[in-house]
């Protein structure tokens, strides 16, 4: 089972949004797509999900079940949370008793109460709606999960909780994941490989492997790796950041573990002060 994109290009009218994308996603791997807005990340996911046909190139998806979690929850407003979760199961003609049981069990695992499951989407909070949208995708027991920043509108705590729930499911089933994210630390935390994309036309300009197993990634390692990642020329060029001011201090930032490099990197002179604070 794997996903293979070869020489994939896509155009909307005369605008070229993707050009010459090559990507192989073997079973069990998590890949994060990062890059500035408008570089064709969502288009790429839509093409893989079959919502659009590529203008050129080939997509070979040999995964048995692909599920897509959109950027917004996109629940059917006239269906209860339970019915929304079971949408894909009903499409597969799973019997009523079975889909009810599976959807309810999954909903509860993701933190929805019985009362929540009977509610219509408008009565649920944003966090609850995201849980339902995630449950709808996981209900398919996918081999490949496409995530388009599904939790970007949620607060930090909720986001962390939902990612933890997601990771537990993904780990248990060995699901492959292709995720879009704007949060580099999230990419470092959750993926085996990060692909840096650049716009006009959308293309892959860099690939970074994270060798450490996900279970062994502690906060210090994540901060350290994110900082290192942020300093690579591909990332700086891709996001239009100035070239790295200090090429080397990789060790110092990582040890303290409390310094978010994203906050420090844009302010040259203050950065030094904060860093030395962290080292004390």
């Amino acid at each position: 089972m794997m996903l293979e994109l070869s020489q994939l290009s896509h155009r909307f009218a005369l605008t070229e949004v993707l050009a010459g994308i090559n990507l192989t996603l073997p079973a069990g791997e998590s890949v994060a797509l990062v890059g500035p807005s408008g570089c064709g990340k969502t288009t790429m996911l839509n093409l893989i999900a079959g919502l659009d046909r590529p203008s050129e190139g080939r997509i070979e998806n040999r995964y048995a079940a692909t599920a897509y979690v959109f950027q917004q929850p996109r629940l059917l407003p006239w269906k209860t949370a339970l019915d929304n979760i079971a949408l894909g199961l009903k499409a597969r003609r799973v019997g009523r008793q079975e889909w009810e049981a599976r959807a309810a069990a999954l909903g509860r695992r993701l933190g929805l109460t019985g009362a929540d499951l009977d509610k219509f989407p408008h009565a649920l909070s944003g966090g609850m709606q995201s849980r339902v949208a995630l449950a709808r995708a996981l209900a398919l027991e996918p081999d490949l999960l496409l995530l388009d920043e599904p939790f970007s509108a949620l607060d930090v705590g909720l986001k962390a909780e939902l990612y933890a729930l997601l990771l537990a499911e993904v780990m248990a089933r060995g699901t492959s994941v292709l995720m879009i994210t704007h949060d580099l630390m999230e990419a470092v935390r959750l993926s085996d490989r990060i692909l840096m994309m650049a716009p006009a036309p959308g293309r892959i300009v860099g690939e970074f492997r994270l060798e450490r197993a996900q279970a062994e990634r502690d906060e210090a390692w994540i901060y350290h790796s994110t900082a290192a990642f942020m300093r690579t020329p591909e990332v700086r060029a891709g996001f239009g950041l100035p070239p790295p001011p200090h090429p080397s201090p990789a060790g110092g930032g990582g040890q303290g573990g409390g310094l978010p490099p994203a906050a420090a990197s844009s302010r040259g002179p203050e950065k030094k002060a904060e860093m030395s604070c962290g080292a004390h």
């Binding site: 999900a49 079959g50 897509y68 959109f70 996109r74 006239w78 269906k79 949408l87 499409a91």
Partner: peptide, 25 residues
């Protein structure tokens, strides 16, 4: 359109797309 995409991404059969997505709206 976003709901139409959901119907396609989750492989809803034509009949279900009609009764569960189009008709209620």
């Amino acid at each position: 359109d976003q709901l139409k995409d959901v119907a396609r991404a989750y492989r809803l059969p034509a009949r279900m797309t009609l009764t569960d997505v189009y008709l209620p709206h």
